[in-house]
Design a protein around this nucleic acid. Structure first.
Lengths: 125, 125
DNA sequence: CTAAACTCTCACGTCGGCGTGAGAGTCAAG
DNA sequence: CTTGACTCTCACGCCGACGTGAGAGTTTAG
């Protein structure tokens, strides 16, 4: 498929897709005239990129990761260390967010407290 | 205390403290000559600002929150709604991060799996 | 064959949370 | 009174993930 369709099917802008390629996260083929051609599997990759971006990883690292994965699996040890570092950072972020959420709860509670039925928490809380 | 000491005691740069004031999150007095004068309680406020920033809230909202709190408690309903929206966003972010973390675990596992002792998870996991 | 719809490659604009001088006033120590 | 450490107010710089034209070629429907 061409870039417009991929954009439509992933909900990601054309510009963003080109940017992902620029960073090495996507490696589409080209038609003789220069148009990018993507396969269905790229849809999943785009979803992964979005997920990793949302988790705070930079495109440079994501590019390396996807390059390792699609090129030929088995990441360089170098790359593994960076991934493990990111994993630790994410765990810290989670703890931090949980803490911050209770801070917000305090703010919301101490300023007024209308009766509230149990609001069904995050799957983890 | 003056801004340099507050910076030293909070670990936040002088520039950042001035920026927080500019956004209405801090409201220091001034000496006749124009120097900002902070009280000890500002130390806690700065910590809160850092926490909220790390959780992804913008300085504009943080400014409103701290203004409400320090001015006189009881947030405007308007402000409460925004806080509750942020709370929901944070819960979503947490779920998202937990999901992303397991994605990273998959990546790290499927590419190689050396014996690993239990690495002690986040307090919540 | 033509016009609309897509796509291509530059390349500059944006936004937020500060960093980093520039130039000038202020305060404490000797 | 001077010197050096702080502080003040502009105001431009930075970085990352795109947005947004500009100008030009490609493809497809009628």
């Amino acid at each position: 498929m061409k870039i417009g369709e991929l954009a439509h099917r992933t909900g990601v802008s054309v510009r963003a897709l080109r940017y992902y390629e620029e960073k090495g996260a996507l490696r589409p083929d080209r038609t003789p005239s220069g148009y990018r051609i993507f396969t269905d599997s790229e849809i999943r990759k785009v979803a992964h990129i979005q997920t990793l971006l949302a988790a705070g990883l930079g495109m440079d690292l994501i590019g390396e990761i996807l390059a390792c994965l699609s090129g030929e699996s088995l990441l360089l040890d170098n790359c593994r260390e960076r991934l493990e570092a990111e994993r630790r950072r994410i765990t810290n972020d989670i703890d931090q967010l949980v803490h911050t959420r209770s801070l917000l709860d305090d703010l919301l509670a101490t300023t007024r407290a209308p009766a509230q039925p149990n609001p069904v928490e995050s799957s983890i809380a």
